[in-house]
Design a protein around this nucleic acid. Structure first.
Lengths: 194, 194, 194, 194
DNA sequence: AATGAATGAGTGTTCATTCAT
DNA sequence: CATGAATGAACACTCATTCAT
């Protein structure tokens, strides 16, 4: 008994999430209809409703699954001493998490308007704030706050902005991290030093 | 004696653009319906179609109008010598242009997925590429390319990301520019020096 | 002072009729919008309303103009003795009238459903009935009625049905008339003879 | 105990086709709106879209169903020897097919302009050409071509043109066929004989 | 002799969602 | 574990028509 023919059964929920994320990332949340998703899976629209309560719920479930590494990173980061090494480690791990869940983060990046109104909108915002808080010193100057935000943001957006550029993805990721390190290092040195 | 009651006639086109941009920025392009726009203006949907051929055309016209300063900046930048001063000037002017047309740029930032499929999508992409080209050295390293992209991106996104932060907007803008200058300076010094 | 540039003035009414008939014949009455007509003429829709009360009125005016030869034929026919020669003459003249006003008759032929609801619908029907009455004997048999109707109908529809066929239009017209003559001759000879 | 109340379920598709054809034939394709169809059926417009992809698709499906007898006649005719008897048989069978699918053929006759732009337009034209080809001799004269076209056309249009005439429909049909036979007989005898 | 600006009623079509089976 | 059938609300867009200027 092979695995491909009729390999569905039991994993339909997963397949819905996969296809949905693919389409959401490709065309946006609003422009992707449940009809499209169900047709791509060769099931009926009603089948989606067996697995998920609403369209939004599909997205929420994807987010819950794929965002877990970030939650864990956050939890881990809170336990660490706020050293420069820790900060770099956080950026580094965040960057790795992005690779794994690239479509989701690309989607979030490109659909901020749509996501803002959704239930996950608030959560996302909070995660970003919490992450920045981990890599900046409490009471940092405005400029340093910008440096740390930019470091995180570069890590995040760089992945998608550089997509069209030729070159090894892993090298690009390293380059982005290098710049992010620079920014966070500069911000780190400020307060104690001066 | 007031100006509001029955002040229409002649300025309806402008009013449509204003309200449309406001709603597009607030709720996203897809989520904003022409019904909503027309109701807010107290005209019929059909009136919108007297002034614009399609919904997309409304957005395109807004973009054409508000993006002009950026076009001019681009044209100006191409005539300048590629000095560090020029680069800073470009970032500086770009930042000022953003302030003027903030809602449009916020909209573009938050609706990338929607905008990508629209006619203006290509234009926007080209503008970004052209702007980065002006502030980076030809044949720059990957890391320097990231620095310059991030400089521009920070200038751009910083405006909206920092919106919720307390503090004088003008100060925030200055802080963002400071970091952007840092990045572009670093990238500028690299190639010739080392 | 030439005639082409700015040759309008005074003849706009005529130009509207021309363009309208062209489009009506090409795409059908319902599918042709006043916007299309006015754009083709490079005037505003409102201008059409200066010259005609309604869309239907445009068609009615075209019909009134182009149908006049048929009215005259009808009037003439009623004065003639009901000989076979007269009948042939009527078919012949009708055929000639069709050539002159081909687009109108093609339009009527292809838009019966639309025309039926319009004010001219009744008139058209009456004309057809009246014409048939002129070429058939009073109290003709059912089959002879069919022959005469078919003779007229062939004359009429043949013009458009044979449009795609290669060959000289005038020859085709003659061929159609030949068959129509046959039919009416047969019907003519019947009642008195047998 | 009746059959009407709540008899739906399973036959909605058919009911849509029935009502649509009725209205199309009565008022024309363009003038018939989906709202009208759905209201007559006491379902929502959206229900129509569950069963058919577009308005045009409703018409296409009706055509596919009702035109089948003509397709079969065509196939049958191609297998027969091209005798006068065969030709008469074809006209006769065609006439019978018309009776069964009268509303469709009346619709096609009266909405040529609308139908021309639709997907079925081409098919219809081809059917007519193919049918004429079956009842005329290859290489027939122009006049004989007209005779055969007229024979078919009379069979076709006679049904609707004579609708208003008093008298038994079956008798009228016979009368039309008689004339059609005459025409085709005349055309048949020409080439070999003379 | 015509336009600019607008309207009200409609169009075909799509959507997320529901529910009995 | 899913489908078949449907809905209500909305959508972008088009139409013939009007009227002050």
């Amino acid at each position: 008994m092979g695995s491909t023919p009729q390999q569905r059964r039991g994993n339909t929920r997963q397949r819905i999430q996969d296809v949905a994320l693919e389409l959401f990332a490709e065309q946006g949340y609003e422009k992707t209809s449940l009809r499209e998703i169900s047709e791509r899976l060769d099931v009926t629209k009603a089948a989606l409703y067996y697995h998920f309560k609403t369209k939004e719920d599909i997205l929420a479930s994807i987010f819950d699954d794929l965002n877990r590494p970030v939650e864990e990173l956050l939890a881990w980061g809170k336990e660490q001493p706020r050293t420069l090494e820790t900060k770099k480690e956080i950026l580094s791990r965040y960057s790795e998490a992005l690779v794994t869940a690239a479509p989701l983060f690309r989607f979030m990046q490109e659909n901020q308007a749509a996501v803002r109104e959704l239930s996950i909108g608030q959560t996302i915002k909070e995660r970003v704030v919490a992450l920045v808080a981990l890599i900046e010193e409490p009471g940092a100057s405005l400029a340093d706050h910008v440096r740390c935000s930019t470091a995180l943001f570069a890590t995040h957006a760089g992945m998608f902005a550089l997509k069209d550029l030729e070159g090894d993805p892993e090298e690009k990721r390293k380059a982005v991290l290098e710049v992010a390190f620079e920014l966070v290092t500069r911000a780190h040195g400020r307060d104690p030093v001066e």
